[in-house]
């Protein structure tokens, strides 16, 4: 399991860079970033090298920041590997709210996903022998 930070951003020019600047000034490094957006606002999801500090920094800077647990896995570098894992999770009754991939230094694809039932997911992933982060 890893921590992720979700930040509410209204669709206003410069809002994303304001957020990034606050993190940079605090010396936090971004590891990954993904945005889910609607017409009027977005939810920026980030994973950093110091999530606690990032969360506090953003809150202080006036952002609505929420710390969320993600199940994170390393996906084997074989065709259809991710599909197989997702099918197993689905069959095991694990609903995935959203997922995205991380930057990886190892050469392997890394995926994080949010679910209401992480324990269930972990049991299934362990059974499959998937490497968790």
């Amino acid at each position: 399991m890893i921590k992720q930070i979700a930040v509410f951003l209204e669709n206003r020019e410069g809002r994303v860079s304001e957020c990034c600047k606050a993190l940079k000034d605090a010396g936090v490094n971004l590891c990954s970033m993904s945005i889910a957006d609607s017409k009027e606002f977005g939810i920026l999801r980030i994973h950093t090298d110091n999530n606690e500090l990032a969360h506090v920094t953003l809150k202080k800077a006036g952002f609505l920041s929420t710390m969320v647990d993600l199940v994170a896995i390393e996906v084997p570098d074989t065709p259809g590997a991710l599909a197989d894992i997702l099918i197993q999770l689905c069959d095991g009754g694990v609903n995935i709210d959203y997922m995205y991939s991380f930057a990886n230094a190892s050469g392997h694809a890394q995926i994080g996903f949010k679910t209401e039932t992480p324990e269930k997911a972990i049991v299934i992933l362990e059974k499959l022998g998937v490497k968790m982060i």
């Binding site: 992720q4 957006d37 977005g42 939810i43 809150k59 929420t66 969320v68 709210d97 949010k114």
Partner: peptide, 8 residues
């Protein structure tokens, strides 16, 4: 500022 939000 006290609510938790991570989805649209």
């Amino acid at each position: 500022p006290h609510i938790s939000i991570d989805q649209v």
